[in-house]
């Protein structure tokens, strides 16, 4: 059975996701204004909000499908990416920063140009 201490994890999740996303953005030389999209793991709207603020990226550029599909763990990021690609929102050449956090604890980020 899946068990979780959500309240205790919240702060660690925000810090770990924001720090690693920042590190990945720096590694790719992405300044806040260079980032077209942020694709965060879809675990909780408040975590996503906090991570976007830390990266100085407005919520309109944050990819979201949590309202429709909730937390699908490892599937949140690829499904959100695919959805936005097929809707024509994410285009070739867009700079993207993606960050995840999960049980373990595990976390990681990646920056790429689509």
């Amino acid at each position: 059975m899946l068990k979780m201490k959500g309240n205790e994890i919240f702060k660690i999740a925000v810090r770990a996701m924001a720090d690693s996303a920042q590190e990945a953005a720096d590694a790719a030389n992405f300044k806040p204004e260079d980032i077209d999209w942020v694709i965060p793991h879809q675990a909780n709207l408040r975590i996503i909000d906090a991570v976007a603020k830390r990266l100085k990226v407005p919520m309109e550029q944050v990819v979201m499908n949590i309202h429709q599909y909730a937390n699908t763990s490892a599937a949140t990021i690829p499904t959100a990416l695919d959805q936005y690609v097929r809707e024509g929102k994410i285009k070739r050449g867009d700079n993207i920063v993606s960050a995840a956090f999960g049980g373990g604890l595990t976390w990681g980020s990646m920056s790429f140009t689509f």
Binding site: H41, A43, A74, A100, G104
Partner: peptide, 15 residues
């Protein structure tokens, strides 16, 4: 197996 980070880890390994 990296829980919710599985896809990011997978992309990094593939890269």
């Amino acid at each position: 197996t990296a829980a919710c980070s599985g896809f990011i880890y997978g992309c990094n390994v593939a890269n």
